[in-house]
Write a protein that binds this DNA or RNA. Structure first.
Lengths: 164, 164
DNA sequence: GGCAGATAAATGCATTTGCATTCTATTCGG
DNA sequence: CCGAATAGAATGCAAATGCATTTATCTGCC
């Protein structure tokens, strides 16, 4: 390779025509992913001061909101894979954040709920979570926020048909 | 499930007052995350037929769009952690999808680019990616899509200040 | 020039993840 | 009712991940 070519910003091998097929800056999965990861990373850092991980917080937030749930319900609500969640719940149980209990009515299922300690911790975390969200939404009008919520719901619903 | 926990009577759940503090259904990080994960999961399934993972596709998409990049630039563009990306690039290099080359101007850095084979594969994948996006955005007007893009950019920018 | 400090990428290692499978319990068809 | 099929959760295991550190290079200052 000739000297002086290395490190140039744009390679000659990429015709402009190619690029036109696909504009990353207008590609929804990309925009969604990077916004989501950035928010997640920032909040993870805050959670680490409580010795918590983001998936733990997600479980706690869902249990706070919905009350006790079966593991399968939590899989759906948290978007965490089933085996991952099973182990996460075992560790959260070990730390006294949640309690697991076989369901009397259907002993295949396990009911998960926040312990009082878990609830207290969640109560502490909620203001931090809302502050994070507030920063992310700086400069948004209430109408914009509503519209955004609605669109994210629609995307979630639309994307359901992409699964199997 | 550890033995001895079944049937324990745990007083149930959630005073209504608690719930009011925090409405998950209007919590941006939650809505963002679940929409993103669902789209990602769906596209991962398509990619598996090409023996590719989603992070590989992200790298390919960024290189397609931006042309050759340093590893550090790819970290930023793909939101993939540096050590993870370093290993991912090694594996993509081994499979002939990308080429890595020490930068002549600054030998600390490594320039990454799509190989011709990587470019061909990317060209094949783009229509699939756009079809996925199209499904997710079914029923959206062009104005809504524009507004969504803009808001996701703003969130990404706003969230930057959360990362000290 | 030479060294202290900074920057880029790679690597060691423990943890997390996810697919495939297993184990237990329930439901359904005869 | 009984056995096969199904459903829910846990687990084995290999792969992916991320933090902390290392290795290599560069930059600025004297």
């Amino acid at each position: 390779m000739p000297a002086g070519k290395e490190g140039r910003a744009v390679p000659s091998s990429q015709p402009d025509a190619d690029k036109g097929l696909f504009d990353l800056k207008r590609f929804l999965p990309y925009l969604l992913n990077r916004a989501g990861i950035r928010l997640a990373t920032a909040f993870s850092a805050e959670l680490s001061r409580f010795d918590l991980t983001l998936p733990m917080w997600r479980v706690m937030a869902v249990l706070w909101h919905h009350g006790e749930q079966r593991v399968t319900d939590l899989v759906i609500e948290t978007t965490i894979e089933q085996s991952t969640l099973s182990r996460l719940l075992a560790s959260m149980d070990g730390r006294g954040l949640v309690a697991r209990q076989r369901n009397q009515r259907d002993a295949r299922t396990v009911i998960v709920r926040l312990t009082p300690a878990g609830r207290d911790l969640t109560r502490q975390l909620i203001p931090l979570a809302l502050r994070n969200e507030g920063t992310a939404l700086q400069g948004f009008s209430p109408q914009e926020i509503d519209a955004l919520h609605t669109m994210l719901f629609r995307i979630f619903d639309n994307a359901a048909e992409l699964l199997d």
